[in-house]
Write a protein that binds this DNA or RNA. Structure first.
Length: 271
DNA sequence: AGAGGTACCTGGCAGC
DNA sequence: TGCTGCCAGGTACCTC
């Protein structure tokens, strides 16, 4: 389940192999992802040179002069680089071949991902236009969460997972960041103090940065490997640990569904 | 405008 | 062993 750290790790893993490379072939075996892969993707992309591999939220943006490929890995997607021919498996939906001979292969068993193309400035694309700030950027200011939360009665966990508020905080890291900040996930977003939002903002940053750092050191191989970043290279304090002792107070970690998502917290340490 | 629910998809697992 | 059924999880989109 790629969360932002996994997407960023993927970006860093594939960029050296496709940057400044020209696309010579695009093979789409299964166009039916979250949205259909454009039928004319090959015509649009072949001949283009990838100038940059960027990331906005959990979208990977492969920019060239003629347009930008927008890739989302959904829940089960991965990208890897092949340096020699490997027969495609049943979930290997797209191969993009470059002048170097390297192939960028998109695999996505559950097909929640996407591969789209835009010729317009990518930040104006409907999927990206309304997104909140990047959690590791200066735009994610200490006051941002507090200001955005006023008047909101929903659970703070749902609030920080809302991409219009801040991007890249998925289900796992929402639980982790709230645990670190000592904030109960069910607390109404509008009833968290400014001081506590400052702490939460820092905890979101710390949690995501640590995970990205772990992604760089965890065993993972984007070249001729499985393309799977080490999701859990970073130890998780509460996520997936319902019933286990809280690292802080030893009381059992609670588990319950919040906003249709499994959520983990310590009812003693988080208020 | 905010909040809640639904859909998309399939591997993996529990239960029979 | 084999079948059925449920669950996970990101996020756009629909409804209230």
């Amino acid at each position: 389940m790629p969360e932002l750290p996994e997407v960023e790790t993927t970006r860093r893993g594939i960029a050296p192999y496709i940057c400044h490379q020209r696309v010579v072939d695009v093979v789409v075996r299964q166009p039916r992802l979250r949205w259909p892969i454009p039928a004319d993707l090959g015509q649009l992309w072949v001949g283009q040179t990838v100038n940059r591999v960027d990331r906005r939220a959990k979208y990977l943006l492969l920019a060239s002069d003629g347009g930008t490929a927008i890739i989302h890995l959904g829940m089960s997607g991965s990208l890897r680089i092949l340096t020699h021919a490997q027969p495609p498996g049943s979930h290997d939906h797209v191969d993009v071949t470059f002048t170097s001979g390297s192939v960028l292969r998109l695999t996505d068993p559950r097909r929640f991902g996407a591969l789209l193309w835009t010729c317009a400035p990518v930040q104006e694309h409907p999927l990206l236009r309304a997104l909140g700030p990047e959690p590791l950027s200066a735009d994610f200011s200490p006051n941002h969460l507090f200001d955005a939360s006023r008047g909101r009665r929903g659970a703070v966990k749902n609030f920080i997972m809302d991409g219009h508020v801040v991007v890249g905080v998925g289900n796992i890291y929402a639980s982790e960041a709230l645990y670190r900040a000592g904030i109960h996930p069910l607390r109404a977003a509008g009833r968290v103090s400014k001081v506590r939002y400052h702490r939460l903002q820092q905890c979101i940053r710390d949690t995501l940065s640590a995970a990205i750092e772990a992604g760089g050191t965890t065993l993972r191989d984007f070249v001729d490997g499985d393309g799977q970043p080490g999701y859990f290279g970073q130890s998780l304090a509460v996520y997936g640990r319902g019933g286990e002792p809280c690292p802080g107070c030893q009381k059992p970690i609670s588990q319950r569904v919040i906003g249709q998502r499994a959520s983990f917290y310590c009812s003693a340490c988080q208020r």
